[in-house]
């Protein structure tokens, strides 16, 4: 038997819907558990992105400095990187703030002008990440091996891709079943 695949799932600037769709694999998760070790995930307890990851599924766009640092680590430490869902693939809803311009005026408006007149903007160094002025998709920062669109990609689409990758095949990302956005 092949050794178990080291699987990481990562949540960047997204709504967690893509992770929920992953959980919609339902009982197939039990089969999956026989073939993978979940080494990093919002549903697991590892705090540091590990090395020698075989497969990293990334949900969400790159929206702040911590995402930016993390995505470089993910790329360095992962053999296969998948952009999971429209936010990772295009920026999608997370990028809807881009036309508003730089992050600072948006924060000013939300937290101060329409918020708390103490004039506080969340900004504690090392605690709240600095927003990027422009939200970008994952492949704008690091090379991506496979793209799985959908908002979120339905569970059967995720399963088809995982089955291919587990068998060492290239996922057959064709046709409306695999490629539809939204």
């Amino acid at each position: 038997m092949n050794p178990k695949l080291r699987l990481a799932t990562v949540w960047l600037g997204g709504c967690s819907g893509c992770h929920m769709s992953l959980l919609d694999l339902d009982e197939w998760l039990i089969d999956l558990a026989a073939h993978v070790d979940l080494v990093y995930s919002p549903i697991a307890d590892t705090k540091i992105f590990p090395s020698a990851v075989d497969l990293a599924l990334v949900e969400g766009a790159i929206a702040n400095n911590e995402h930016l640092e993390l995505i470089h680590t993910i790329r360095r430490n992962s053999r296969i990187l998948v952009s999971l869902g429209d936010c990772a693939v295009t920026g999608n809803v997370t990028a809807l703030r881009n036309p508003l311009g730089a992050a600072a005026p948006t924060l000013q408006q939300i937290y101060v002008d329409h918020g708390d007149p103490r004039g506080i903007i969340p900004s504690e160094p090392g605690i709240v990440p600095v927003l990027l002025d422009t939200v970008v998709p994952v492949h704008a920062v690091v090379p991506v091996d496979h793209f799985l669109p959908g908002c979120p990609p339905p569970a059967p689409r995720i399963r088809a891709m995982l089955e291919a990758l587990l068998e060492g095949r290239t996922p057959d990302a064709q046709g409306p079943e695999m490629l539809r956005f939204g």
């Binding site: 600037g13 702040n64 703030r97 036309p99 508003l100 939300i110």
Partner: peptide, 12 residues
Amino acid sequence: FHVTEFRGFERF
């Protein structure tokens, strides 16, 4: 307890 994400729905 720090919450570290921001997407700004109310604005866009």
